[in-house]
């Protein structure tokens, strides 16, 4: 009686796991072995790994994602460090979170205005005497806007790991004669590595597949793995090839997760 009651209880969740987690991933793998005429084939993979276009596209996506992650990390770490030492830090971190509650599309749209030929940035350039630049639809603007969107997601985990550090560690470090800089690099930074790693994980993986940003801000010039998947699924209707690229994305994601996870485990064992 009790057992069947329980089973009934958990059914919706397990159904969800089976239908919306396991089945879709399985279907992507399955479809990646079919061509556009729905015949079983390994051609999609052969095409992917022998074509220069797909390989450069993959390399570019990884490079873009790497740059976006790096820029947001460099900006976010000092930001998190300063905020964690402010008196009303909860309030300040709330101000970091607030922009994430605003629709992503609206933020991207704002940049279309900001970076356009007569937009605010060019107007400011004009004041300093720099001629108007074509900023929209360039690699640089794509990376800039993507980093803008990702910065709060990078700040949060770093901030959390910073606030977890007990003050006594920092006091001990100072008592033992360490300078501020030494305390930062030898004590604080190593202790916040878990936060940095989860920040990298949170930012890097979505950055691999930002297809709407590459369309809106990068024009159609920037083609990432994400745009390729979208194009194959919704425009050319070649689901097999789209799934193959999807599988590559999944593998890239798993590698990124392993790189950011295993090291943490190793540290714990040490």
């Amino acid at each position: 009686m009790k057992r069947s009651f329980r089973a009934m209880f958990y059914t919706p969740y397990f159904l969800w796991l089976a239908l919306f987690v396991i089945a879709p991933v399985g279907l992507i793998f399955y479809y990646s072995f079919f061509n556009i005429r729905h015949q079983f084939t390994f051609d999609n993979y052969a095409t992917f790994f022998s074509s220069g276009t797909y390989l450069t596209m993959t390399a570019n996506s990884v490079l873009y994602a790497f740059l976006i992650t790096l820029i947001s990390l460099v900006i976010s770490y000092p930001m998190a460090l300063v905020i964690s030492r402010l008196r009303h830090r909860d309030l300040w971190i709330l101000l970091v979170i607030l922009p994430t509650w605003i629709n992503l599309l609206l933020k991207a749209y704002a940049f279309i205005g900001l970076l356009s030929h007569d937009g605010l940035v060019n107007q400011l350039f004009g004041l300093v005497g720099i001629p108007a630049q074509h900023m929209l639809f360039t690699d640089a603007s794509f990376i800039l806007v993507a980093s803008y969107i990702q910065i709060p997601f990078m700040i949060l985990p770093i901030y959390n790991s910073l606030t977890d550090i007990s003050d006594s560690y920092i006091k001990a470090s100072h008592d033992l004669g360490a300078t501020n800089w030494q305390t930062l690099t030898k004590v604080i930074f190593p202790m916040t590595m878990p936060g940095v790693k989860s920040g990298i994980q949170i930012v890097f993986i979505p950055s691999l597949s930002l297809f709407m940003l590459s369309r809106l801000i990068g024009g159609n010039k920037i083609i990432t793995l994400g745009t390729a998947v979208e194009e194959h699924f919704l425009t050319t209707m070649n689901w097999g090839m789209g799934s193959t690229i999807g599988v590559v994305l999944i593998i890239a994601m798993v590698i990124a997760m392993m790189l950011t996870n295993t090291q943490r485990k190793r540290r714990r064992q040490a």
Binding site: F20, L27, S209, G226, V229, G242, M253
Partner: peptide, 13 residues
């Protein structure tokens, strides 16, 4: 998982 993967796999599903 990246949004596109979720979207594409749900579409197939």
């Amino acid at each position: 998982s990246p949004d596109v993967i979720m979207g594409a796999s749900f579409l197939i599903f």
